[in-house]
Write a protein that binds this DNA or RNA. Structure first.
Lengths: 216, 216
DNA sequence: TCCACAACATGAGTAATCCTCACATTTGCT
DNA sequence: AGCAAATGTGAGGATTACTCATGTTGTGGA
């Protein structure tokens, strides 16, 4: 494998989703083009009806070239999901990093959800990508693992704010809160903005009430 | 899960999911056989990999006969979903019918969730069917409408237990609680029974905390 | 500059799968 | 029995994910 000129020292997607790491500059641009074309098509009509031929055409390349970068259709979905997941994970990690009290937790979480909602609202295609992931057993496992990772971040923050609680209990709560967050976001982008905002606010209140000592 | 099918006079599924209302006895039996075959295949390998030829073979009929009862693959998924939805809706309506106080609401809801979990645990294929519904834009709308219907039942019960609250607020909360319930169930059947139980209990606590007057 | 080789591009073709349709068989009724 | 309506059948059309043999472009050394 030759060392290329503008080497991205940290390989962005090196998890097997892509067939090979593109070494030339144009190749990397094409990968971006493919992903944005796919995203657009998924947003328009859903992942099921996204045709590989359409992705190729919209990207201005041939079918063969498309398959040089992605081994199959699911790989495109997976790569898109991983990108969004990375954004969200970073957002969560950053938002909860310095939390040490319940008040801080509630405030940080509220801000986090607002940010999360903005991301979702700007890219409602995330909902369709999530749906596509859920339809496949293997991809569903990936999404669950991602949720567990995010839940672990939240559980850590909760443990700092609520040191008296058992870690196991916190992990369970955190997993629920995280999955419910995704659920609320998908719900919010499925309706008009007014109801969406109300749902997000209601979710924030529900979550905030979970950030409290166990009362029996 | 016993879904009653002994009333030929009142067409049971007359919503376009089925190609024609089967009039002869054997036809109705075949429809049942098709649905149980499909359910089994979906449970085994997911709806994507369920092949219409497999459904036909497992049902002991030809491809042509299969398509005489169901216009397409999605119709089978939809019919299965509608049956499960009907069971759940009846369960919710019955469980919340006589609620008039917060205490009753919490207790009824807790019992309801236990029942719901039992249904889900006995038929984890519901998760796969739900996933299949989510993958399609039109079917997703159906599921959302179903959730809204269930939420309306809960909102009514909440209004009786919490007459001071605005109906709009209650509807928002109820929709969230219902969707989160589905989410929790799917999560619960995706892990071992111990964690599943813990998740369900944690969800019940979260929901119970929502059944309270607005505190700011 | 030229050449050899690796990387990349192409699209006709293959296999898998959903679904149709023209025709055969069974059932219900008189 | 005999006819019409209902039901059954599976080869085949249409679509689509994906492959592969072949052509084109870029890279590095002599």
């Amino acid at each position: 494998m030759a060392v290329d000129q503008t080497a991205p020292s940290t390989a962005p997607e090196d998890d097997g989703a892509m067939r090979k790491a593109p070494t030339q500059k144009r190749s990397r641009e094409r990968v971006e083009h493919i992903l944005s074309s796919a995203s657009r098509l998924i947003a328009e009509r859903g992942s099921d009806t996204m045709r590989m031929s359409e992705v190729a055409e919209l990207s201005g390349i041939s079918i063969g070239s498309l398959y040089q970068y992605f081994p199959d259709k699911a790989a495109i979905i997976r790569t898109l999901a991983e990108r969004y997941n990375a954004v969200c994970r970073a957002c969560i990690a950053k938002g909860l990093a310095n939390v040490t009290t319940i008040g801080e937790l509630r405030q940080a979480f509220s801000a986090l959800i607002d940010e999360y909602y903005d991301i979702f609202f700007a890219e409602p295609v995330m909902r369709d990508i999530w749906s596509a992931m859920q339809a496949d057993k293997a991809l569903r496992e990936i999404e669950l693992a991602e949720s567990r990772q995010n839940a672990a971040l939240l559980a850590d923050a909760m443990k700092r704010a609520l040191p008296g609680e058992a870690m196991e209990t916190l992990q369970t709560s955190a997993l629920l809160v995280m999955c419910f967050g995704d659920c609320a976001m998908r719900l919010a982008v499925s309706t008009d903005e007014t109801e969406g905002r109300a749902l997000v606010e209601a979710y924030k209140r529900m979550a905030a009430r979970s950030f409290a000592p166990e009362t029996g």
